[in-house]
């Protein structure tokens, strides 16, 4: 009898172990389309704390995990500025977040972010995710990595910006714009996940 109890207990312990393990990997995956994202309070390059709720009248948010140094982030910088200029007035502002650890990548320090934002005259907030908690919660893995949110913070689209990183003049499909246009027209986003090359987020060493 005690042997059976013991087996049962061991079995129970194992099932808990494997359960917590699978939950761990699930949270590592981050948000999926349809999930509820969460708001944050992060420091903008102007020194002020900023949240999604700081945007009055937003119909949604184009959350862009990006950085100063990654060549793919740089390739898309002007396109991200153009996106904000096109969609902020329609209710979809760009909110850029830099999650890179500055010890690993000094070029992504808060001061360097301020320099970059000034020289490129970013028309959108450029926020520092110092603890990397927001990048982890969202499941961002690279820069650039886009999360398009509805105003109730439901994730509508995850992925890249368009189909041609090399040459913005030769873009054929604008994945992100199509998704925003669909939301503006109260339609379903047809292609709600795309894949793009990017630089791994520089996670701080644990």
């Amino acid at each position: 009898m005690t042997k059976i109890k013991l087996f049962f207990l061991i079995g129970l312990a194992f099932s808990f172990y494997s359960c917590s393990d699978s939950m761990g990997s699930q949270s590592k995956e981050g948000l999926k389309v349809g999930d509820k994202a969460k708001d944050f309070s992060l420091k903008n390059v102007d020194g002020k704390m900023m949240s999604l709720k700081s945007f009055k009248d937003a119909k949604g948010y184009i959350v862009v995990f990006t950085c100063n140094e990654c060549p793919y982030a740089k390739l898309y910088e002007d396109r991200i500025i153009a996106l904000h200029n096109k969609y902020a007035s329609k209710g979809f502002p760009v909110v850029a977040i830099n999650p890179n650890n500055e010890t690993i990548q000094p070029g992504d320090s808060f001061e360097m972010m301020q320099v970059r934002a000034k020289s490129k005259e970013f028309p959108f907030p450029y926020l520092r995710d110092e603890t990397q908690d927001i990048a982890r919660f969202y499941g961002a893995r690279k820069t650039p990595h886009i999360y398009l949110l509805k105003n109730n913070l439901e994730v509508a689209y995850i992925g890249g910006i368009d189909d041609n990183p090399q040459n913005s003049d030769k873009v054929e499909e604008r994945y992100l714009e199509n998704a925003v246009d669909a939301l503006l027209a109260n339609k379903e986003v047809q292609k709600n996940v795309t894949k793009a090359i990017g630089c791994t987020i520089k996670w701080k060493e644990s």
């Binding site: 189909d163 793009a196 791994t200 987020i201």
Partner: peptide, 20 residues
């Protein structure tokens, strides 16, 4: 390849596109 979205999933579905 011009469009990363055309092939990344074919290598592995779990790949976000980050390298290495």
């Amino acid at each position: 390849e011009i469009n990363p979205n055309s092939w990344i999933d074919k290598v592995d579905k779990t790949w976000s596109g980050a390298i290495p």
